[in-house]
């Protein structure tokens, strides 16, 4: 028996929003420790890795490990049926071929349940090595989304240059070029408004703006985004999911032909 109850169904809606741009379907691996998802986008360019810890749920029970392959379009349809303030419970029997979503209004006067067929998905699991990154940048998630959106008007690529002074985002294309420099915040009153750089060595890398834009669909999950970069290894774009977990996106830098 698997059962996971979240008082804030909006978290699940936001998680889905954060992955459905890149993935059409995904397997939710449920175990005693929580729910994990790892999947590459269709073109195998980026990787999404999400973790929701069992202790972050209001109720969590998982007697046996269960992998639930879900069509994210169908899941989106079902979660649209939940009000933001509803309590959501996901349930499945062991070896089940369906999952049930139960939505309860805060006053318990309306209870709905939706059963969704599960899919058998071919799963590739990738081992992600522990990496010491040359630069780790934290900045407001909304600012990062704005920068990615603004720069994607100029070119297909965004160059991210990180030094101890701050971080620069650049793009160039047919209409011209654009540079956005963010200085490291000198006086941090509110962490969620700060730009911070932890740097071992300066890094300049080029990334596909289309994928960066897809990653920013997670913006509503967190006030802060963390970018981890090293030469010749994938960028990690990480958003925390409240007190319950995180979502990380991996994207390899472009290389010059």
């Amino acid at each position: 028996m698997f059962e996971a109850r979240l008082v804030q169904s909006s978290i699940l809606k936001k998680v889905l929003e954060a992955i459905k741009d890149l993935l059409n379907e995904a397997t939710f691996d449920c175990s005693d420790s929580g729910i994990q998802l790892q999947a590459m986008d269709n073109s195998h360019v980026s990787l999404v890795s999400m973790n929701l810890r069992s202790d972050g749920f209001d109720k969590y029970r998982c007697d046996r490990n269960i992998s639930m392959g879900m069509n994210l379009g169908s899941m989106t349809k079902i979660l649209k049926c939940a009000a933001n303030e509803d309590v959501v419970t996901m349930k499945a029997q062991d070896n089940a071929d369906t999952v049930t979503f139960v939505f309860e209004s805060p006053n318990q006067e309306k209870v709905s349940d939706y059963e969704m067929k599960l899919m058998n998905l071919d799963q590739e699991h990738l081992g992600i090595p522990e990496t010491e990154y040359a630069c780790v940048v934290r900045l407001p998630a909304g600012e990062f989304a704005r920068i990615c959106r603004d720069l994607s008007q100029f070119g297909e690529s965004v160059v991210i240059s990180c030094t101890k002074e701050g971080v620069k985002f650049s793009s160039a294309g047919d209409i011209g070029s654009a540079n956005i420099k963010l200085a490291q915040t000198s006086n941090v009153d509110k962490e969620e408004l700060a730009v911070t750089v932890e740097m071992q060595e300066p890094v300049t890398l080029t990334f596909a703006s289309r994928y960066l834009n897809s990653f920013t669909k997670a913006t509503s999950l967190s006030n802060v985004v963390q970018l981890s970069m090293s030469p010749d290894v994938p960028l990690v774009v990480e958003y925390r999911i409240g007190e319950i977990g995180h979502i990380r996106y991996y994207l390899a830098p472009k290389i010059e032909d």
Binding site: M40, L47, G127
Partner: peptide, 14 residues
């Protein structure tokens, strides 16, 4: 011109 490597080139299947 830049080319885009796949993520699977960096992380191994387990």
């Amino acid at each position: 011109q830049n080319s885009q490597p796949q993520i699977i080139d960096f992380f191994q299947n387990i």
